[in-house]
Amino acid sequence: MSQSESANAALPDVRVFHWMNRAIRPLLASPLHRLVSKRLMLLSYTGHKSGRRFTIPIAYFAWDPGTVLAMSSVLTWIPSMRSGPTVQLRIRGRERDAVPAVVEDRGELADLLAKFARRNGSRAARALRLGLPGDRQPTREDLEAASAKTRFVVFHLTP
């Protein structure tokens, strides 16, 4: 098996995500959202190229007051966040408007990952599946290597 084949074998098939999204999206929009809304929210936005409206479930973390943090190594929705348009989030059953700020600078990403690991613990940092250790706080080298694999979006909630 070639190196690219083995790397692709480790990633779930995109069809699995599409199927899961179809099941999770209506659940998050329903009164039963509590089953999954502790860690998942709905993001509704307009595509930057197509102009189409999308609603996708994404993992999130409550961050600072009035701020929600989301990350993705799948970058399909990230470009639509770069222009900073107001988007809609459905968090724990409540609709909220938010202004996204994409963090792409490797140093800033490493800093955010370090802060995440301090706040949530090394096991939670490992669960991000970016190669961070789960048995100790990550070193700067660990954080910089992990920052190459992801982007963060900080959503500033509007009142």
Results as ranks from 00 to 15, higher is better:
L35H: 06
P133F: 01
A114K: 02
G107T: 14
L109E: 01
N8A: 14
R34F: 11
V153H: 02
L43E: 07
M20Y: 13
S30F: 09
D13Y: 12
E144A: 10
R126S: 10
H156I: 00
V68F: 05
H33D: 08
G84I: 09
Y60G: 03
A146S: 07
V16G: 07
Y60V: 00
S83F: 13
P65D: 04
N8F: 13
T86N: 06
A127N: 14
A114M: 03
Q3I: 10
R39G: 05
R126P: 02
N8I: 07
T67Q: 15
G93Q: 07
P12N: 04
P57C: 12
Q137W: 04
E141G: 10
K149C: 02
A145K: 12
V87Q: 00
E5M: 09
P159Q: 12
T76P: 05
A23P: 02
R94L: 14
S80R: 03
V14L: 12
G131F: 08
G131H: 12
P85I: 04
A23I: 10
S44L: 09
W77K: 06
L11E: 13
R22H: 08
M41T: 11
P85H: 12
L112T: 09
A9F: 10
P133L: 06
M71W: 08
N21W: 13
S50K: 03
L109T: 15
S50P: 01
M71N: 15
A146H: 09
R39K: 15
A146W: 09
A70Q: 03
K49T: 07
L69R: 04
G66N: 06
L40T: 10
G121V: 06
L27Q: 06
E5C: 07
N120S: 15
A110H: 01
L35A: 15
R123K: 15
D142T: 04
S50Y: 01
M1S: 11
A117K: 11
I24N: 02
P85D: 06
A10Q: 13
T86S: 08
D64S: 13
V153M: 01
Y45F: 15
D105W: 05
S73A: 09
E104N: 10
Q88R: 14
V74Y: 12
R15L: 13
D64V: 04
L40S: 11
L112Y: 11
F116C: 00
F54Y: 15
L143A: 08
L42W: 03
I58L: 14
A145H: 08
G121I: 05
E144H: 11
G66Q: 03
G66P: 08
Y45P: 01
L130S: 03
